[in-house]
Design a protein around this nucleic acid. Structure first.
Lengths: 248, 248
DNA sequence: TAAATTTATGCAGGTTTATGCGGGTTTTTT
DNA sequence: AAAAAACCCGCATAAACCTGCATAAATTTA
């Protein structure tokens, strides 16, 4: 087992369970206690998780552990401003969840007059309270991790929808594998969101570029725009342009 | 269970109920009394809560929404505590919107294990973030005034639902006209909520008693419980008892 | 290809942390 | 005032931690 491979699996576990125990991991991977500790230490230094005595917690726990702060807010704001230009009056706009999309909502010009559809609870609340636009919430069972509705009923409602554009917060994007995710329930919804929309815009901070999670949401050919905080000429975006994606 | 994880959960509990009891926590987490005490001591040293004999109190008040400016919070809390006793483990509970119902969510014992269904956005967010229970949001077009979903799709989804009990925040209640409302869109939804539930509980502060609005949600005979901040023997509740409503 | 360097891992040892328990004190309730 | 509950202090222990060093594998350099 390679080190990187092991670390990727640790992060995946963390995505699913929000916590890992050192003693579980060393058994699972059949390595020494020290190796696991060093892995967690490295990932912690990279800011990918929160190391605690006995294991590690996902960044999500950070919300309750310390004050509410968005990870890399500056970058996300840059992304939001670029993406907001794609929204025109009269559009039917589909929004996923995530802090990047939340920044997009904040960056909306107050003059815009569109209809927004979302399965994300915080997004719906924000749109309702801080804009004059019509808001439609697609609801069903709520997933606590993603703070959004999931399940068959959501998919069913999306099936009757024909949005102009869909903005999708992206956990992992790659020029070959496209947009990928780790939680099956979320995939189901995101796949249908893509199908229901004329255009798909992927919002991702650059550190999510060239990363892959277990399940595919959509192929690169299905992505219309990619928005990152980097200038569109940046070399690490080259591969995406060649895959036919418009890079903002 | 990791120490930090436990502490994060304690803070989460505090966000919901504004207080925690040591004896509840030690049972919930299956640790010794001392461990809980040390947790509370540490969190208190960090200034995250206020430690008191027997447990702890939340420090600041809540930031998620405008519950700081609740009208008559004391009365509503009294109502909430009485109403919370009607919720039992395993129930499917339907909740309307409104600040009184929000207080009910805060008054939920942390041990409760039920499924909550609601068309109210703030309610869904609160339940998701500050309880461990399953939450189902009934979504569609959102009404800005009531902060909840309205329209045919909501009614359709409610039609397939069979809840045990429905808690309804009440704007106007009268022993003859029953529960009444002024916004047509809300009536549609509330009527269907009543139909979808085995029992209906009306939560109302006493100043809403004997008031009538233009449209009827349900007749007095359809109300099972009325919960106000008044003691159940109070004379102004007499008329409701005679209408066959159980008064708490 | 062989040698040198780097990287990943494991181990020995000594230290720190988390937790529970005994026993006694303070606070609250009846 | 008695009883119950919650508190505090110190101690014991197991688990997790760290530092430094050794070794093996992988990578680079000669």
């Amino acid at each position: 087992m390679l080190k990187k491979e092991r670390q990727a699996l640790i992060l995946q576990q963390l995505n699913i369970h929000n916590r890992v125990l050192s003693c579980e991991l060393l058994e699972k991977f059949s390595v020494s206690e020290d190796t696991i500790r060093r892995d967690l230490q490295e990932l912690s230094d990279e800011g990918r998780l929160i190391k605690v005595h006995g294991g590690a917690l996902s960044k999500g726990f950070h919300f309750t552990l310390s004050s509410n702060e968005v990870y890399l807010p500056e970058e996300k704001r840059t992304i939001a401003q670029k993406a907001a230009e794609l929204i025109k009056d009269g559009m039917l706009v589909l929004l996923s969840g995530g802090t990047t999309i939340m920044e997009l909502v904040h960056a909306l010009p107050s003059t815009i007059n569109a209809t927004f559809v979302t399965p994300s609870v915080p997004m719906a609340l924000e749109l309702m309270n801080n804009s004059q636009n019509e808001v439609i919430f697609i609801g069903n069972k709520l997933n606590r991790d993603a703070q959004m509705a999931v399940g068959a009923e959501v998919v069913r409602q999306l099936q009757t929808l024909h949005a102009d554009i869909c903005f999708m917060g992206t956990n992992a994007i790659d020029a070959v594998s496209g947009i990928t995710e780790s939680i099956w329930e979320i995939i189901e919804v995101k796949k249908e969101m893509r199908r229901a929309s004329g255009k798909l815009v992927s919002l991702a901070i650059s550190e999510k570029l060239n990363t892959v999670q277990p399940f595919q949401v959509c192929a690169p050919s299905e992505i219309d725009y990619l928005v990152t905080e980097l200038p569109s000429g940046h070399p690490s975006l080259q591969a995406y342009k060649q895959a036919g994606i418009a890079v903002l």
